[in-house]
Amino acid sequence: MAQNGWGAALRAAFPYTVPIFAGFWFLGLTYGIYMHSAGFSFVYPMLMSMAIFAGSMEFIATSLLLAPFDPLAALLLTLMVNGRHVFYGISMLERYKGLGWKKPFLIFWLCDETFSINYTANTPAGIDRGRFYFCVSILNYLYWVSGATLGGLFGGLLAFDTKGLSFAMTAMFVVIFLEQWKNDPEHRSMFLGFAVAVLALLAFGPQGFMIPAMVGILAGLLALRSRFTGGAA
């Protein structure tokens, strides 16, 4: 076991990641093609997928690159969009404890899908836990980066009109939104999010509404905390 520990960990991890492979290649290719159709070289999706490694944020980053320069808004938006990672991290504190040099990589690679596997999967008997986590994480990372790069490289060879492809981002958020639906049985946070976002859009217009909307959502959630939690906060 000691000699081929990594091989065994990889063989144990791979089956868990097959569905992610399908999903990441589909979305990664779409992202790369989308960047290509927005006029960026494949270097952009390649480097952005390597450095950001958060799919929905990379789609948004593309639209940020096409908008007027505003790094503070980009940072705030990233913190809000990826705020959920904080809770993945909290959930993985114990599992990732004491894993030495692997730990910073595991934290860097902690996307939604990797979290869902490493949080729920029981490491098979005889497999080193840290190596299993590492293999799951790096496989998912490689799927995403390769998909995004290939999409950027070969997006120009597509024989069909890519007009409307950017809707993949909208569809992705609609799907994640539907998945979130069950976390709040009365869906109040979602109505709050919609209401604040629409009001901010009407008040500030499409270029300037995101920061007021984010502030409004945070303030609204904090103000309604006792109501949302039934006073059991």
Binding site: F87, M190, G193, F194
Partner: peptide
């Protein structure tokens, strides 16, 4: 507790905001 509260309720609101962002 406030962090755990935001963990439960922030994602739904943020993804609602992102749908509006896509349609802006």
């Amino acid at each position: 507790a406030v962090i755990r509260y935001l963990g439960d309720f922030l994602p739904g609101a943020v993804f609602a905001l992102l749908i509006v962002y896509c349609l802006k």
